[in-house]
Design a protein around this nucleic acid. Sequence first.
DNA 1: TTCAATATGTAGATCATCTATATATTGAAT
DNA 2: ATTCAATATATAGATGATCTACATATTGAA
Lengths: 115, 115
Amino acid sequence: MEIDKSLISGSTTMLLLKLLEEKDMYGYQMIEELSTKSDNTFSLKAGTLYPLLHSLEQQGMVCCYESEADSARVRKYYSITKKGKGLLRDKKAEWQHFAFAVNQVLKGGTVHATT
Amino acid sequence: MEIDKSLISGSTTMLLLKLLEEKDMYGYQMIEELSTKSDNTFSLKAGTLYPLLHSLEQQGMVCCYESEADSARVRKYYSITKKGKGLLRDKKAEWQHFAFAVNQVLKGGTVHATT
DNA sequence: TTCAATATGTAGATCATCTATATATTGAAT
DNA sequence: ATTCAATATATAGATGATCTACATATTGAA
């Protein structure tokens, strides 16, 4: 199924931080892993990813180092910082709150007053 | 909790159609019901709602009639059409697919190959 | 040597939300 | 009577996260 991009909007940062919480990764790898783990629901574009990574780096949420581990090629690996882990925690709470609220509305029926 | 607007992006049409599936409503009422049913998670702005309603009407997803039922005041009531119900069905499926994929990534761990 | 896949990057377009502004009615308080 | 907050609808322009399109370069296979 093709997912409306605007639905994905706002969740990308959280998903990237989550990936980095598991292990250090380079940009291209994050696009692939996100696609795999979501059964191709998320196919993040390079033009979205790289500016986002640079922005997260500037904010101190991730840090970057170059490495040629396991490859002749030098890649830019990203690592989540303590600050980034804090942001991830907040974003996860926000997502859960949001998803609950949507499902609440979709469930339908009348809300009873609590007063 | 304050929810990032970009997270809400893309779900508004679905939520409005869902409200109208339950009963005919006028614009201002939809803002209030959406807020109540979501425990104030969604506080849709008038500047978002009215253009959206007009757009949905043009697409034939909802239809509009004026009425002064239960009030001295003439209000514009909106009603969901058969086409609108079809769109709602699609949007719900899309939302469920999306939410599942996000939770899949958040769950973490390695995805095992299915081949 | 040609080409697809890998890998990183920037500029500008798109689109759904927002804020700000406008208008008018209703009902309650002064 | 008059003022004011809440109700009710509406439009214009700003914002912000995504996208497409373009640019560059490396790697490995045909």
